[in-house]
């Protein structure tokens, strides 16, 4: 009787695990609604959101720095050359914001914060963050997130009507809400593969997050990226354990990253007499 009881208990627990796993991998609320928003509409939405953020949000002034722009272009080019079958035109901008963060917006728009550039000790770390954001774009996580939070009607309403109040609402939602764990892991896996294909060491991601974690106690408020990306330890582990193909050789970027970062302070000094 004792063995039969154990067998029955095992069957019950296995059924519980199987049902949970089934609904986790095959959600009952699939992302079908997302397909009702075409890439063209998403790009249109992205332009409205970017216009709103750059025009009306004081924390999102675009930073124009030729040295930095050129370095970022080299990083992006290296990554984007390896992005296969993309429907998006990527638009990557640097915004004058001290937060250590980067955000993905609809339609292939990515904002890299000045704080992230200052914090990164190597261009490979910026590349790792960018690869992660490109992953969010490719998997259409932003539109999924917005549709889930605000509903399809509001999103299509913004695209077709362009109501300023709704645009502000959508823009704030795009910035404030978090991706779920599954989406973060998906973007991480995509990023690690993209880094490998771009001849950038995937361990750059681990280095970035490890330092970010160490700094967390010192300067908590500016490390926005940590609060929006939970489970840092598992991400560091995944990055360190990622196995690159045989013969993989990381190629360093040829520009001087310290000079690029110094150019940020130089532009600040140039601006200071006016203040």
């Amino acid at each position: 009787m004792g063995q039969k009881l154990l067998r029955d208990l095992f069957i019950l627990l296995a059924a519980f695990g199987a049902i949970w796993s089934f609904f986790y991998f095959f959600p009952v609320f699939p992302d079908e609604e997302i397909f009702e928003i075409s890439i063209e509409n998403e790009e249109q939405l992205g332009e409205l959101v970017v216009e709103e953020l750059l025009g009306n949000e004081p924390d999102f002034a675009e930073l124009n720095n030729p040295t930095l722009d050129s370095a970022l272009k080299m990083i992006c080019d290296r990554l984007l050359q390896q992005v296969e079958l993309t429907d998006y035109d990527f638009h990557i901008k640097i915004v004058d914001n001290e937060m250590v963060n980067a955000v993905t917006l609809p339609g292939g728009h990515i904002f890299v914060f000045k704080g992230l550039i200052e914090f990164s000790e190597h261009p490979e770390e910026v590349a790792a963050v960018l690869a992660h954001e490109i992953g969010h774009v490719q998997k259409r996580h932003v539109v999924k997130k917005l549709v889930k939070e605000l509903g399809l009607a509001i999103i299509t309403g913004v695209i077709t009507g362009g109501d300023p109040v709704l645009i502000t609402e959508v823009s704030r939602s795009a910035l404030s809400t978090f991706f779920d764990r599954k989406q973060e892991s998906e973007a991480d896996r995509y990023a690690l593969k993209l880094l490998e294909k771009s001849n950038i060491s995937p361990t750059a991601m681990a280095a970035f997050f490890r330092r970010l974690k160490q700094q967390n106690g010192i300067n908590h408020e500016s490390l926005e990226i940590l609060s929006t990306h939970p489970h840092t330890n598992s991400r560091i582990k995944a990055s360190l354990e990622y196995k690159t193909h045989e013969g993989f050789e990381a190629k360093k970027f040829e520009f001087d990253w310290d000079k690029v970062r110094d150019s940020l302070y130089a532009s600040n000094e140039f601006e200071s007499p006016d203040e």
Partner: peptide, 16 residues
């Protein structure tokens, strides 16, 4: 107000 915490992990449990 955000529903982003209700991820697939939660939804899977809900249906279970």
């Amino acid at each position: 107000e955000s529903f982003s915490c209700f991820d697939d992990f939660y939804i899977g449990y809900f249906w279970t």
